Computed example of a mutant assay.
Amino acid sequence: MSVKKILVPLAGRPSDNEVLGTALSIAGDFGAQIVALFARPDPTEALPYLGDGVSGQVIEDLLQAAREGADDASARVLTMLNEAAGKAGFPIVGKGAEPPLPSVRFLDVTGRRDEVVASHSRLSDLIVFGESATGIAGGTALEAAMMSAGRPVLIAPKKSWAPVGGSVAIAWDESAEAARAVTAAIPFLEKARKVTILCIGDKELNPDPGSTLADYLALHGVVADVHLVDARGRAAGEVLLETAEKAGTDLLVMGGYSHSRLLEFIIGGVTQHIRSHATIPVLMAH
């Protein structure tokens, strides 16, 4: 399987430019189409929370202001998209005839962002997210794409990144989530010039699981080295990022939310740490 459709949820923020740059780089490498998605809030969903004492005119003014705000944000997304696609030499196409590849499409869809993103993620090969307004990459829309829609996601760092996947590190812990991330990353791994399997634990770490993954990847024509990392009591997420960055990695592949989201939120976890601190592209699957 190759990467042919890349969904990129955008909100009209300045940081969208960096996310687009990373997504365009990936689309160019794979000859893929980027679908830039703007989820337009439905202002009528807020009406039940306004209370009975609000006049009809006030309600109409609020609805109109919300529509105008969404129009402005959508226009910013389209402007950014036109500029970025033009610089990359990608045509912007509409729905209908078979599009040239690589290319770009723009969708403006009304609805709750999480639901819109999840719906459009289901038939996408990869969903690319940047930092959200909360500082956590992708916000709840990333969780919707990865967990509700079951699709792999890529966290784009704050700085536009190209190329993505020349040197790949795999965080391997034998979990189902990590295995799904590996299979989702096969198109990147087959193109990579260097692949490293990172197994993080204590000084008695068993090398066999990493070797088993290396044998599997060899069947796909991927040569991978196994690197055992002694965490020395430090948090696994911190050690993982530090090791990947020092190795010059430009794509980290890992499972997401091996523990429940609630547990990760309460006690912290690898996924939450990576989403908050990643400085390199990260491909995750659940």
Results as ranks from 00 to 15, higher is better:
266 I>C: 07
136 I>K: 13
95 K>V: 14
226 V>K: 04
144 A>G: 03
10 L>C: 11
94 G>P: 01
68 E>C: 10
196 T>E: 14
146 M>C: 14
9 P>M: 13
237 G>F: 11
205 L>D: 00
271 T>Q: 05
31 G>W: 03
228 L>E: 03
257 Y>F: 15
141 A>C: 07
33 Q>A: 08
227 H>F: 13
270 V>H: 05
57 Q>L: 15
159 K>M: 15
120 H>C: 11
68 E>F: 07
274 I>E: 05
220 H>M: 02
218 A>Y: 01
62 L>I: 10
251 L>D: 05
73 A>D: 12
81 L>G: 02
44 T>A: 12
75 A>L: 08
191 K>V: 05
97 A>S: 14
14 P>A: 10
105 R>G: 07
43 P>T: 07
193 R>T: 09
198 L>Y: 05
113 R>W: 10
99 P>L: 03
48 P>M: 00
124 S>W: 03
170 I>Q: 03
95 K>T: 13
225 D>E: 14
156 A>N: 05
217 L>K: 02
230 D>P: 08
69 G>A: 12
138 G>N: 04
75 A>K: 04
263 L>Y: 13
249 T>R: 00
247 A>Q: 13
221 G>H: 01
255 G>Q: 10
162 A>I: 03
270 V>A: 08
44 T>Q: 15
277 H>F: 15
138 G>D: 02
98 E>C: 04
39 A>R: 00
143 E>W: 06
114 D>V: 11
207 P>Q: 06
95 K>S: 15
235 A>G: 11
266 I>Y: 11
153 V>Y: 04
51 G>A: 08
188 F>I: 06
159 K>Y: 05
129 F>M: 09
46 A>T: 10
28 G>E: 10
1 M>G: 06
277 H>Q: 15
211 S>R: 09
235 A>I: 11
12 G>A: 13
126 L>N: 02
122 R>F: 04
192 A>N: 09
185 A>T: 07
76 R>S: 10
176 A>K: 08
21 G>E: 00
82 N>S: 10
237 G>A: 03
225 D>R: 07
1 M>I: 09
82 N>R: 15
175 S>M: 11
20 L>V: 08
200 I>N: 01
114 D>Q: 14
227 H>C: 10
278 A>F: 04
102 P>E: 03
233 G>E: 02
9 P>S: 11
283 L>N: 01
32 A>S: 11
172 W>F: 08
91 P>K: 00
106 F>W: 15
215 D>P: 09
